[in-house]
């Protein structure tokens, strides 16, 4: 029983980590008023660059760093389109998603002789164990013997919450998403605030993707991310655009995945088809939303381009 619980927490942490990172990225962008359906694309490009740079430099940490840099670069077109050009942000996000997967797989095929996946990375981010804490039953083996990305994710939720609620920049971000005109009147550049917020989203989502290709997994291919950016977006909305909320939502989703996988191990498949077990996370999410969470109030100016001098 204890063993099963340990496994459950383990899967929860494994699945929630990339979702938390990407959703935190989405949080900054959307709280600043820029819709971010491009999380999927940022994760993809992050996973790709992390794998490639790890292969070429032989260092997973450089790989991780490069994912952040490339993620930021990749967020710029989305920023330019949605902030300067006042384009429809959903449209630009969809374009980014196409672009990321297209470019990543195109380059992999070009670099590796038509191969659909990169070679296995020579080094990976290894699990770091925190002595004593990792002995805690059930939670210890997964939470305190985790990948660096998991620690990063937890740290980023805390730091992100502090930034968002306790610093002037955070106040500007939130104001830019609710009443940008008022912020502009106060002498703050909306463009600057939104640019930084979108760049943060690129960086964090790419970090989440990197974890998939150089920590949990060890290569990049076109199914490495496979929809997790959209689940992260769902977690962001589910968590009502709040750091604590999205943390809970991502954990809840990971937990449900854990339940569906445990079901396989304890031979529930003798009674329930495996496909039905696989539906669990999605059904649970719907039930939770319909039953308990309900109305999602998005930031008031989400998706609305800001025109200088407008009210």
């Amino acid at each position: 029983m204890l063993n099963l619980l340990t496994n459950l927490v383990d899967v929860t942490v494994l699945y929630a980590t990339p979702l938390i990172l990407a959703a935190m990225g989405g949080l900054f962008s959307e709280r600043a008023g820029v819709v971010n359906i491009a999380l999927e694309g940022f994760m993809t490009i992050g996973a790709f660059s992390a794998a490639i740079f790890t292969i070429f430099t032989g260092s997973a940490w450089i790989g991780l760093l490069s994912a952040v840099v490339v993620g930021i670069l990749f967020s710029l077109p989305h920023a330019i389109a949605s902030i300067n050009w006042r384009a429809d942000q959903v449209v630009s996000g969809v374009a980014i998603n196409f672009l990321a997967l297209g470019i990543a797989v195109y380059l992999v095929k070009r670099m590796y002789n038509g191969s659909a996946q990169t070679p296995v990375v020579p080094v990976k981010l290894e699990q770091i164990s925190i002595p004593i804490l990792n002995r805690i039953p059930v939670l210890g083996p997964s939470l305190f013997e985790a990948y660096p990305t998991t620690y990063l994710a937890i740290a980023i939720v805390i730091i992100g919450a502090v930034i968002l609620y306790k610093t002037p920049f955070g106040i500007h971000v939130r104001a830019a998403g609710i009443h940008p005109a008022a912020l502009e009147t106060a002498g703050v550049s909306i463009y600057r605030v939104r640019y930084i917020a979108v760049m943060i989203s690129g960086a964090l989502a790419a970090l989440g993707g990197a974890g998939l290709s150089i920590a949990v997994g060890s290569e990049f291919n076109q199914t490495t991310v496979a929809g997790q950016g959209f689940i992260a977006l769902a977690a962001l909305i589910f968590g009502k655009w709040r750091p604590g909320g999205l943390l809970l939502a991502a954990t809840f989703f990971g937990f449900s995945v854990g339940l569906s996988l445990i079901g396989q191990i304890i031979k529930l498949t003798n009674y329930v088809p495996s496909e039905v077990l696989s539906m669990i996370p999605y059904v649970f999410t719907i039930l939770a939303l319909a039953g308990f969470v309900g109305r999602a109030e998005s930031p008031a100016s989400l998706g609305k381009p800001y025109e200088k001098g407008s009210r």
């Binding site: 959209f230 769902a234 589910f238 999410t285 939303l289 309900g294 998005s298």
Partner: peptide, 11 residues
């Protein structure tokens, strides 16, 4: 219920 259509649709 005001639940965001994007999440439910993805699920």
């Amino acid at each position: 219920r005001g639940v965001h259509e994007v999440i439910i649709s993805i699920m």
